[in-house]
C-alpha cells in the first residue's frame, strides 16, 4: 500500500514536470520582425532593403520583409534558431545568410529588430504591447427558459 502511494506521488510529480515541459515548449508567442531604421542608445542601424526570415524547425512560411516594414509570426516555445537571409533587390538571389540562436525572454521580448541583430547589438529584442483588437463583442448566454421570462 505504502509502495503504491510512493509510486502515485512519483507519477504526479512526473506529470507536473511534463506539464511544465508542455507549457514551455507549447506556449505560443507572437513575434514582430522589424526591418526599420532603429536607434539603440547612441547607435543607429539602417533598415535592410529586403530580407527573408525563418525560424528553424517551425513549419510555416518564412516572412519576407521590405525595408521600413515589419511583420508578425506566431511561434511555439522559447528556444529558436532565427535564420535571416538578405535578398537582392530582384527578390531572387540570397546575398547573405546568417543564423542566430535566441531564447525569448520571460518578459516576452517580442519586437525583433533585424538590423540591430545583424549588427550584433545585444538589445535587439524588446518588449512592446500589442494592440490586438478583441473579436466582435458577443454576449453572455441568453435566457433559455421562456417560462421565467419577464412578464411584460
Amino acid at each position: 500500500m505504502k509502495r503504491q502511494y510512493v509510486i502515485d506521488a512519483l507519477i504526479v510529480l512526473a506529470l507536473v514536470a511534463f506539464s511544465v515541459f508542455l507549457y514551455q515548449s507549447g506556449k505560443g508567442y507572437t513575434l514582430i520582425f522589424d526591418n526599420r531604421d532603429i536607434t539603440i542608445g547612441d547607435t543607429s542601424y539602417p533598415a535592410l532593403p529586403y530580407i527573408r526570415v525563418s525560424l528553424g524547425g517551425v513549419s510555416g512560411r518564412p516572412l519576407e520583409i521590405m525595408g521600413g516594414d515589419r511583420d508578425m509570426m506566431t511561434v511555439m516555445g522559447r528556444k529558436h534558431v532565427l535564420k535571416v537571409e538578405i535578398l537582392s533587390d530582384d527578390e531572387e538571389t540570397v546575398t547573405a545568410t546568417s543564423e542566430h540562436r535566441f531564447v525569448i525572454r520571460y518578459d516576452g521580448g517580442n519586437l525583433l529588430s533585424i538590423p540591430a541583430l545583424l549588427s550584433g547589438d545585444a538589445e535587439w529584442n524588446r518588449r512592446i504591447e500589442l494592440n490586438v483588437a478583441p473579436p466582435k463583442e458577443d454576449e453572455a448566454p441568453k435566457e433559455e427558459m421562456p417560462g421565467t421570462g419577464n412578464p411584460k
Partner: peptide
C-alpha cells in the same frame, strides 16, 4: 496561449 499538441496534452 499554449499551442499545438502540447496545448492539447496540457
Amino acid at each position: 496561449n499554449v499551442m499545438g499538441i502540447q496545448g492539447m496534452l496540457l
